[in-house]
Design a protein around this nucleic acid. Structure first.
Lengths: 237, 237
DNA sequence: CGGGCGATTGACGGTCATCAAGCTGTGTGG
DNA sequence: CCACACAGCTTGATGACCGTCAATCGCCCG
């Protein structure tokens, strides 16, 4: 029986049968440590488009994403938005540099997280170099991806941006789940536009152009990479 | 007497009188640890435009930047370049995620670094949670700055990009050295263009426009923020 | 059936890239 | 001492790419 829990309420579910553990920071923990950490975590569920934390907010918690997809973004004072990443199960969120969140995070569809009070989590991490190193690797990976995204934003054309996004998104999904013929796109066109530094219209036009050119096929809720080789060529490096 | 050392040669100089220690990861070390680390580090000097490490190269070393400015960048197969950051004294470089460098790094002017063999450095860090946490904070800060740079690249106009760059560069210099009336720009216009996702012509035009508008004054080797308030308004958030 | 939201398509214009000169300062050699 | 070369920077003319504004479509759901 699946229990539906709304944000703010807790659930009791064991780390033992956590699907994302091999992908999460928890993979660096021994069995007994895992039990200790379990005491600190709280399982929460968020509904579509519900905010999880916000830019400038005091960063009291950090999160393991268990299920669903989140958008991570920054807003400018005049409302312009830049999505800096999409989070998938296994991702660790909420690291902050000055006690406040540098970005905002929303659920895209339904989302389940494992939430920790930052202070107690920090205490747990304190003298566990294994876990510290694992967190290190996670941030370093994020930084590497951020560098690649800068290349995309600063130096690629609209068509290259869209193709690159689709190829990388497919690859990320393949890493955490079974490979599928169809690549689901849970985020809206507007989300994609704000991720790629484009407008929604340009994204839409580029999708249809790629479809006309036989590179992709647009299907309900996602796309199919009809000519993966050509898409990968556009995404080169 | 100042000793000039070229890349590949060593120098013996003590961490005790290291100017950048308070800004570097070393600030988290006790006196005795500092001495141990000193055994592992090697002081090296690089000439203007000399590469320090390169994308895809096996990452055998990591570096503390002691003096000078470096450009950190990624190259696309067709030669397009995106500068992902400029490094200043105190910065820690060479973190890699898969054993290979994700970016390239050059000296811009003359540069001095403290170089460590990654393996021995990793051994030193191993069971020093203080240092691990400090490195964590450094990467997290880099990631936060990367997020801000994504907003700039994806969502700001050319004028906003240049103004933002100048304001932030001035602020960074102020943090590690004495505040000065003139803001030196050791990097070329092309470097600035490749950092902001623009062409050199657009950067040049924007500089002259900002000067005509009384926002900046272009001087030998740098600029003066004539109307800092207006520049900061353009850089808002 | 009608309302509403997300996506698509079209017409148009602006911003910034491209191509091409010309400029400025610095170093070099006759 | 001046001509010259060269690299970095600036300026100008032109146009492409993508943003803006607006209309329409398709789909879901009440």
């Amino acid at each position: 029986m699946k229990k539906v829990v709304v944000a703010g309420q807790t659930d009791t579910q064991s780390c033992a049968d956590c699907m994302v553990r091999p992908f999460a920071i928890c993979a660096s923990l021994e069995q007994d440590e895992l039990c200790q950490l379990e005491q600190l975590g709280q399982r929460l569920q968020y509904r579509p488009n519900e905010p999880v934390f916000s830019q400038e907010e005091i960063a009291s918690f950090c999160y393991n994403l268990l299920e669903g997809v989140m958008r991570l973004y920054k807003l400018m004072p005049d409302g312009r938005r830049q999505i800096v990443g999409f989070a998938l199960p296994g991702d660790f969120l909420g690291i902050s540099v000055n006690g406040r969140h540098g970005i905002s995070a929303d659920a895209i569809g339904s989302v389940a997280v494992c939430r920790f009070v930052k202070k107690s989590f920090a205490g747990f991490v304190e003298d566990r170099p294994n876990l510290l190193r694992r967190i290190n690797e996670f941030i370093a990976r994020d930084l590497t991806e951020a560098h690649e995204q800068m290349v995309l934003l600063g130096r690629r054309s609209a068509e290259e941006k869209v193709a690159t996004f689709l190829v990388k998104w497919r690859d990320r999904l393949a890493q955490i789940g079974p490979a599928t013929e169809m690549t689901p796109l849970p985020m809206s066109r507007l989300d994609i536009a704000d991720y790629l530094g484009l407008t929604i219209e340009t994204v839409s036009r580029t999708f249809t152009k790629l479809e006309r050119d036989g590179v992709i096929e647009i299907v309900q809720g996602g796309i199919r990479l009809a000519d993966a080789a050509r898409a990968e060529a556009m995404a080169a490096a």
